[in-house]
Amino acid sequence: MAVITFEGVRKSFGHNGGGFLALEKIDLTIADKEFVAIVGPSGCGKTTCMRMVAGFEFPTAGTVNVDGHRVTGPGPNRAVVFQQFALFPWKTVSENIALGLRNKGVEKLEREKRVHQAVELMGLEGYEGAFPHQLSGGMQQRVAIARAYVLEPDVLLMDEPFGALDAQTRTTMQEELVRIARRNPRTVLFITHAVEEAVYLADRVVIMTRRPGRIKEVIDIRSVRTAEKWDKYERIEDVMDLESFVHWRTHIWRSLREEKSGQDR
């Protein structure tokens, strides 16, 4: 079980006039095993939302709870996948994946088994002994996802995980993520600025306003997905062709554009 709740969250950075308000009146509940994507104009504080669940930042007012417990710091029950991968360059692929298990005190044999499973899940066979620098960006992000998944975390936090990848790799990774999420569901908070990605992956999409970020709209994609049977299509482009997909993608686009044009004025 892992329910994430934001209650009246406000977050400001800096102080004494030099600061700014990043987030205001954030109220959101993410159900167990639900996949929620947050989209919003850049600088709207969507990454800050994720960082508060991770325990890297703390709200200025209000509370962020995971399973009813206030978040007081980072921990392996809330695994993070970073946009910059954040692998340890001096550790091999399997050492990177194994570190969290070692920290948990998992026995060596059990550890090796689980690392192997994670390697298989992410299609990293044959690269166990490689250093991150020897891998492409897509492969590096696979390692980072494996490093997060191997912990069997209650919550998976992903901060624009595919933002640094080229378009093709990105698509493959999105399809893989859907495959993994269906097989092995977790509570996922997924931060992105890519609208298609959000609609394709998420059960619910949260649209945020420009700074100070507030929740503008929450869209239930899961009911659309079920009603329109998106899951029978294996390929992302087939889903993206569906009328229901196009409808919601355009809806979210418009909503975001309103925010952006407001920002420019």
């Binding site: 980072p74 392996p76 695994a79 970073f82 340890f88 920290n103």
Partner: peptide, 19 residues
């Protein structure tokens, strides 16, 4: 973010220094 990754993985202090 490398430091944050280590913290997220629950790395104890001395292992953090060493590794």
């Amino acid at each position: 973010y490398v430091i944050e990754a280590a913290r997220m993985l629950g790395t104890p202090r001395w292992r953090f220094v060493r590794e």
